[in-house]
Design a protein around this nucleic acid. Sequence first.
DNA 1: GCCGTTTTCGGCCCGACTGTTTTCAGTCG
Length: 579
Amino acid sequence: MNNKEIAAFLGQLADYLELSGANAFRVNAYRRSARAIENQRINLAEKIDDLESIPGIGKGIAAMIRERVTTGQSSTLEECKSKLPPELPLLLKIPGLGPKSIAQLYQKLGITNIAELKQAALEHRIRPLSGFGPKKEEKILAGIETLSTRRNRYLLSEALQVAIHVKKELSTHPLIKQIEYAGSVRRQKEIIKDLDFVIATHHPAEVQKAIITLPEVIDIINQGETKVTVRLSMNDLEIDADFRIVIPDSYASALHHFTGSSEHNIQIRRQAKQLGYKVNEYGITDDQTGELLTFSDETTFFHHLQLPYIIPELREDRGEIAAALTNTLPKTMEQADYLGDLHTHTLYSDGAHSILQMVEAAKAKGYHFLAITDHSRSLKVASGLSIDDLYEQWEEIDRLNEALDDFTILKGSEVDILSDGTLDYPDDILAQLDIVIASVHTSMNQDEKTMTERMIRAMQNPYVHIIGHPTGRVLLRRDPYAVNIDQLFQAAKETGTILELNANPLRLDLNDQHLKKAKDEYQLRFTINTDAHAIPQFDLIEYGIRTARRGWLEKEDILNFHPWSEAKQWLKTSTVSSK
DNA sequence: GCCGTTTTCGGCCCGACTGTTTTCAGTCG
């Protein structure tokens, strides 16, 4: 049983407890413990006797985890399940419905699932309950409809496009002093549910009017004095957006507050409390004097809490406050220092541009090197290169390299890992390449043992330098391969194989949490590449770099931030290598 | 249920908005 499963188990307990009217702090204790476990570096099953050393886990929860891990059962969970219908927690997903309302619906009307709730609402049977009325009834019906029909998860790249556009539209407004998108988009999370904006103005009423009359607004969901929620439609994409309006003095605090994450904010407020302060979206209040302090920017806000500036990407309550207190935050990498892409495709396989065109685009971005890594021969759907094609490509690269100063084109391949873990080119061919990325593109449904062994076998090949998109997920479309990530990392460590962070916003693979784990527990090294199939995709590197920041990586950990003469020393060396 | 430079009890982050109320509970972020 892995940490994720244990965390899910505790989350399930929290849901049931909440629905049965348990003390909110007790419920919260379960949720906190679930979160603490998700962030644990060590597999809990191996730490089963020492669970109480994890902050947030005491005797009670530790005992429940032990029972669940060792027996596969949980008497507490069984008891909860025997008292409440199994589908009741699903009602928590309906917007506007919380534990109190659901408990009442169950107790008074015997509602146990969404279908029954819908029926009761349509028959106006929920109206007489205390706290319910016609509007609530309508809201519930709308919520059920939304749940079943509307898309409410977006790629970072999709959400960011809307956020940037709206920010630009409003920033020209004469009464808006400052505007920024906040929330998960600013933290660069890979999947976004809704947008958040913070606006500084002395004229909230006029600004509100400007917001609700934006051409993208198709629905006004909430409207208060300082907060308005709307539904936006742009590029065939509909997404909710919260706007928070504050006076300019409060802007920095509000920006921090609405950037979150909420778990990060809780930790910030705890830190503040220890210093005798109270933090809210308007500023920091001194407990002694009652004075509200405001800040010109987030940096001075953090400094007042005796912390260095923490970049938004790190604000996930994964230890950033503790690291800030000890000055051990990762050094922030900048895109300007990225020296070259090591995973790109050209017309030779399924790319859209020639080698020369790709090289010119790379030079224009200020790169110093570029690896051409077209697909290998068996990947027919992507026009994989035969060995003869490869020879032809090498000649072209040699010719181009001769004409280039201060730029190096590397001969590479994204070679397929065949279903048995062997590679799609023979070793004598691989040995002649500057850079070999091995990737899985076929038989993606193998069981965990088979897939893990397959990938490890590929890493054991002395000519494989990098594993491309190691988990194979495609966000919102395809699950990762069934691969044992710890075994994969261990093998990478033993074989000296570098793991890729594929920067395409559909992949972001490895993800932030994997990166942190791979660095902390296995001291691995990484490469960030776009996998560009066309020139504009070079720009996707920004998603990779920001995901790497979320994974607590630093320049030093990443191949692409080093000059090629240095970077190539990182690659696995083989005695038969011709290089 | 967890926790302690406020230490074994009594707190636990903080505020906006809605829809229901007749002063506020519930939900959300």
